[in-house]
């Protein structure tokens, strides 16, 4: 068996494991009708639930990333399916296949570099001092040793795999989660 087909089988197993609770789905559609994103985007959460665990194409689905994780669908599901938790697990399988939106990579870069997903900048340093706060907050921004701890932990977890090689490319880009 070649590497690619071995990988495919592995992905199918991961998807199946991540999606075990969706087997209870009866396709009633309560999830879709409760979805705030689905009213305005192409996300059809009922359809995602239908193919979760079966179709590896879900990993490339843009809709996978249109869920705001509001949990309405999961709260209302009459079969008690952990819909959002399933979505999060499938997203993780996707990210580990390096299927990552560039904006999300940029957010990862911020965390890796600053220990904050949204780091401070000169404008907000000034806003802090204007109202009488210290220029830097009591976070990793102020304590270099703390930032090094965060970097060590992220390295230990292999987090840099989610970040593109060129760290400088997006460093001045405003990110928000």
């Amino acid at each position: 068996m070649n590497e690619i087909s071995r990988e495919n089988i592995n992905i199918k197993e991961q998807l199946k494991e991540a999606s075990s609770s969706v087997l209870r789905c009866m396709q009633c559609g309560v999830c879709s009708s409760s979805c705030p994103s689905g009213r305005h985007t192409s996300l059809n959460i009922r359809k995602l639930v239908k193919i979760a665990g079966k179709d590896p194409d879900i990993l490339k689905s843009e809709e996978l990333w249109m869920c705001t994780t509001c949990y309405n669908c999961q709260e209302r599901c009459p079969r008690g399916i952990d819909i959002v938790e399933t979505i999060l697990k499938i997203r993780s399988i996707s990210a580990h296949q390096d299927i990552i939106l560039p904006e999300h990579r940029a957010v990862c870069q911020m965390l890796l570099k600053y220990g904050h997903a949204v780091p401070i900048n000169d404008n907000y340093k000034r806003k802090r001092t204007d109202i009488g706060l210290e220029e830097l907050p009591e976070t990793v921004h102020k304590y270099k040793d703390s930032l090094n701890e965060v970097k060590k932990l992220l390295a230990s977890c292999g987090f840099q795999r989610f970040v593109e090689e060129d760290l400088n490319e997006n460093q001045n880009k405003e990110t928000s989660l």
Binding site: R91, G115, E138, D145, E149, V150, C157, G158
Partner: peptide, 29 residues
């Protein structure tokens, strides 16, 4: 009191979506 040296929580939307181990480890710190 303050919590000196804290980092990003890290945010549930992006980081939990990507990698539960990194998310849990940084949150635990």
């Amino acid at each position: 009191s303050d919590l000196p040296g804290a980092s990003c929580c890290p945010a549930p939307g992006v980081f939990l979506s990507f990698d539960k181990t990194s998310w849990l480890t940084l949150a635990s710190r």
